[in-house]
Simulated scan of single mutants.
Amino acid sequence: MSSISPPASSAWGRQLAIWLTFIVLDTGTQLAFKWGADGLGDMDFGLAMMAKAVSLPGVWLATLGYIGVFVVWMVILRDTPLSRAFPMTGLVYVTVPLFAWFTFDEHIDLVRAGGIALIIAGVFLLGGDE
């Protein structure tokens, strides 16, 4: 018996949804870490800082985010060669600075904007169909 495979557009839509989930989760995780780190103020690394860190919601959100990113990454790697999947993770180097700009009022100068543009170009070149 032959199996019926889903239409190519359906498979493409599934991959797009998985990648969007990865990018949203990973971006959110990095922003949550920043939120948590901001809550530490000027504390030096040590037990007091660690105790404070585990009391911060941003740190907990980031930890849960990493678990979610891990699960989604396993799904991605199940269907995509690492040599193609890994360059796609570079999109997070675009989304994190942009959302940090909106969320934390971080500065993106011309050099960083150029770097973001190069990352986008590189992801398209490396992540395209083979």
Rank of each mutant, 00 (worst) to 15 (best):
P97A: 11
F33I: 00
T27Q: 01
R112I: 00
S2V: 14
M49L: 13
V123S: 03
A121Q: 01
L31I: 06
M50Q: 12
V72T: 06
L61E: 09
Q15V: 10
S3F: 10
A8H: 14
I4F: 06
G41H: 09
M43Q: 08
V54P: 12
I119H: 02
K34T: 13
P97H: 10
A17I: 10
V92K: 01
M74V: 10
M49E: 13
I23P: 09
I76K: 01
I4S: 09
V94D: 04
D105I: 00
F33N: 01
G28L: 07
L98W: 06
M49P: 11
I76Y: 11
P81Y: 14
D109M: 00
T103R: 02
V94C: 14
W12A: 15
D26Y: 14
W101R: 07
G65C: 03
F86Q: 10
L56V: 03
G36H: 08
L98M: 06
T95H: 02
G58N: 02
T29Y: 09
L40R: 09
V24L: 15
T95G: 07
F33L: 03
M88K: 01
V92Q: 04
P6V: 10
F102Q: 06
F102H: 06
G39I: 00
Y66A: 08
I76A: 00
E130G: 07
G90K: 04
A85I: 02
L61C: 11
P87E: 00
P57M: 05
L110Y: 11
